[in-house]
Every structure is written in C-alpha cells, then in structure tokens.
C-alpha cells in the first residue's frame, strides 16, 4: 500500500466531502455539548449532595440504553410521522423532513454524548469552592461575570477532557449516523463499514481508519495546546 492511496483520498471530492462532514459534525457536536453541558454541570455541582445524586442519575440515564435503541427513539421523534411533525400538523404546518439529514445525525450524537460532558464537568466543578464565587462577587462581579471570569477558567481542564471524549466519540460513532443519517449523509465510520463489508475493499477501509486515528490525535494535541494557553496552572 503506497502513500498514493492516502493522497488520492484527499484528492477525491467524494471522500473529501465525507471527511469534512465528519469533522464538522464532530466539532458542532462538541461545541453544542459544551454550551449545553457547562451551565447544566455548574447547576448540578452547586446543588446539595442528595439532589446532585438524583440529577446525575438523570443525566446518566440515557447511557443505560443501547445506542441503536436511542437512535430508533429519534427516528420516532423526527420521522415523517414522528411526534414533532404530528404536533406541527395540529397547527396545519406541512411536515418537515428532518430525518436522514445532517441535522438528525447531530441531534443523535449530541444526545449520545452530552452525558459524558456533564459527568466530566461536574467532577471538576464540584471541587470549586463556593468561596471563589463569593470572592468574585465581593469584588464587584455579578453572578454572570463571576461565572465567566472565575468558574469557567477554573473549569478548563474539565472542559478539555469532556471535549476530547465527546469529539472522539462523535468522530467514531457508527450506529447513530448509520440509522439517522442515511446514505446521503455518510460519515467516516459508516464509510469504513461500507468499504469493508459491502464492497470488500479492505485497503480503502484501512486508509480511512488511519486517517481517522491521525485526525483524532491532531485534534487532541490541539485541544491540549489550547488548554495550556488558557490554564496557566498546567504549565508549571
């Protein structure tokens, strides 16, 4: 197998499109998980131990079901006759086709990996003393400013760990894009399966697999670099 196979991957627009889509879906998924996960995790971390246990159980609950079942759940929600379109139908709005789009893949993966982000962040945030928030408030910061200036920077290690977990998870997820994306929204993982299992083209499959591994490593390295820039404590 020569280097040419790798080069031809990037010169083929079909492959390149899938590559870009995969990265895009994974990044958006990570970003949305961050935006949804940070406030949720902070809220959970500030509750009493008893309430925190219950909220964590609720957050983790979706992880107890198989990802195939969870994808099917979304088919029921987003499908042509799904719950959303039924509700829209009440208001005489034409059914929207949401299934088998990049949107549905995103919804599926975010749903899949948000718990990971929350668990990781709660672990870091519950160790931030409430004194920090109060100190910032006493110095003239309202709660929102205090959150952005103190709590968020102090949570950077957790945000990075959570992001790595979510990103690699979303990049390599197979069932969700397969069931919710359909053939027109193929991602790298589904592409590997198609090459290897359907077309019996194991060489292409290995090429794609290696590209995925390298991509993951590059992104992880990049995130660590960002972390060390944001969190000076990590440097010493």
């Amino acid at each position: 197998m020569s280097l040419g196979r790798y080069l031809s991957f990037f010169s083929d627009t079909y492959y390149l499109n899938i590559f870009v889509r995969t990265i895009r879906v994974s990044l958006i998924c990570t970003l949305v998980c961050m935006i949804l996960g940070i406030p949720t995790a902070y809220f959970i971390s500030r509750t009493s131990k008893k309430v925190r246990g219950v909220l964590m159980a609720i957050a983790i609950f979706p992880m107890l079901t198989n990802s195939v079942i969870r994808a099917f759940a979304w088919i029921n929600v987003l499908g042509k006759n799904g719950i959303i379109n039924q509700i829209l139908g009440i208001f005489n709005i034409e059914p929207v086709s949401m299934l088998y789009t990049e949107f549905s893949v995103l919804i599926g993966t975010i749903y899949l990996f948000l718990p990971l982000m929350i668990i990781t962040l709660v672990g870091v945030m519950e160790n931030i003393d409430n004194d920090m928030m109060e100190a910032a408030e006493s110095l003239g910061a309202n709660r929102i400013v205090a959150f952005f200036k103190v709590i968020l920077p102090m949570s950077v290690p957790g945000i990075i760990t959570g992001s790595v977990l979510v990103f690699t998870g979303a990049l390599t997820a197979y069932t969700t894009p397969q069931l919710l994306g359909g053939p027109s929204n193929m991602l790298m993982s589904t592409l590997i399966y198609q090459r290897a299992m359907t077309l019996n083209d194991w060489t292409s499959a290995s090429v794609i697999a290696l590209i995925m591994i390298v991509t993951t490593l590059i992104v992880m390295k990049g995130l660590n670099y960002v972390a060390s820039k944001l969190d000076k404590r990590g440097l010493e």
Partner: peptide
C-alpha cells in the same frame, strides 16, 4: 443591595484566591 454593589472588601478563611490568576 446585592453583594457586588456593596463595595465591601472580604477576606475568607480559605483566602479564596483565584488559582488561575497570579
């Protein structure tokens, strides 16, 4: 009046220094 508008200086038992700032 909320805490952040009082302009009182506070020193905590734990000091509560921001660990990410010098």
């Amino acid at each position: 009046i909320p805490v952040h508008k009082r302009n009182f200086g506070l020193v905590f038992q734990s000091y509560a220094l921001f660990p990410h700032l010098n």
